[in-house]
């Protein structure tokens, strides 16, 4: 009993520190990739290839003054960024990050909490992540913040439906809600990947994932051209930084989910060992998010709702229905 608790605590600390560092590193990668796609160099001067820009930004964020507006609700204003960051990491608790490996004769399962309802737990934790932007916007007594949080509520509630329905069809095929079962169901190489059976579900999940992580075609929450910075208008320093750590951690989570559910997870891929395979897959999805941000314009809020309720949700329902019929026959 005690061993499990200690092991879980150690795993939680490792996941927290590694993913937080990776989330910070993600901002650097994003700036670099976007710069290359616009024929720029990106950050270059702090350290080799600008690698230490990350540390410089961190120091800047930590030492910045933590401004709380005069008419804001102090308590809620202060806890809102923590909700975003915390739920992002709580969601990661149910994700199997790497294949099992043996360290000093002790078999390590790189998953913090092996729930048998892992997928639902991740969705639920990410759904409660909406309270971060929502409360932040409502507490700061700023009209841009209010608009940003209204958009948060609408966007998250709508696209959760699509995420859930799109994942329902693969769940029906595998017959489990555990991500490890999903991974084991696709252990037979590329031919058994879920994406070949459920291409539509994958596309829907990807679109909804972009919306849930607040990435570009759908990043209306803090759309600079319309609402100054949305829910983050009044934030500064580390509280502002926490929103972004949460956002990037969510991007990593969505990358892991897409890899595990649709792309064979951490099974060995030919000559590539499993742990490398999943890192490559997640890196690809992370790159895809940056790539899309460099390429495509935003949608309008009404187009966003149109896309969700009139296009994606009916398609997702049809997909579930057809999958069910095929399974019955």
């Amino acid at each position: 009993m005690d061993a499990i608790i200690i092991e879980t605590i150690i795993k939680a600390i490792i996941v927290l520190s590694v993913i937080a560092a990776l989330a910070g590193f993600g901002t650097f990668i994003e700036r670099k990739v976007l710069a290359f796609m616009q024929r720029r160099l990106g950050p270059m001067h702090v350290g080799p290839f600008g690698l230490l820009q990350l540390a410089a930004d961190g120091i800047k964020l930590f030492t910045k003054e933590d401004i709380i507006p005069q008419h804001a609700n102090r308590l809620i204003f202060m806890i809102a960024p923590i909700i975003t960051a915390a739920t992002a990491f709580i969601a990661l608790a149910a994700v199997p990050l790497l294949p099992e490996f043996t360290l000093f004769g002790y078999t390590v399962h790189p998953i913090v909490a092996d729930l048998n309802v892992g997928i639902l737990f991740i969705l639920g934790a990410m759904a409660s992540g909406l309270y971060g932007p929502l409360l932040a916007g409502m507490a700061q007594a700023n009209k841009w913040g209010i608009i940003g949080s209204a958009r948060t509520a609408i966007l998250f509630m709508s696209y959760e439906v699509v995420t859930g329905l799109s994942l329902l069809a693969p769940i029906m095929l595998v017959g489990s809600l555990s991500l490890i079962d999903f991974n084991n169901a696709q252990s037979g190489g590329i031919g058994e990947w879920m994406v070949w059976q459920q291409p539509l579900a994958f596309i829907l999940f990807l679109i909804a994932g972009f919306a849930e992580t607040n990435r570009t075609p759908f990043d209306l929450l803090e759309h600079e051209a319309e609402v100054v910075s949305g829910y983050a208008t009044e934030y500064s320093g580390m509280r502002w930084g926490m929103f972004f750590i949460g956002e990037y951690a969510n991007m990593i989570t969505i990358g892991f989910m897409a890899s595990l559910i649709f792309f064979g997870g951490f099974n060995d891929l030919g000559f590539i060992p499993g742990f490398l395979a999943i890192i490559l897959k997640v890196s690809f999805f992370f790159f895809l998010m940056l790539w899309v941000r460099a390429s495509w314009p935003h949608v309008r809020p009404d187009q966003l709702m149109w896309l969700c309720w009139k296009v994606l949700m009916p398609i997702a329902l049809l997909n579930v229905l057809i999958t069910g019929l095929v399974m019955m026959v």
């Binding site: 639902l120 934790a125 759904a127 409660s128 909406l130 509520a153 509630m157």
Partner: peptide
């Protein structure tokens, strides 16, 4: 978590 926190409470707050 999904239904009450994610959906119903979000509607209230909306």
């Amino acid at each position: 978590l999904v239904v009450y926190v994610g959906a119903i409470m979000a509607l209230y707050s909306f």
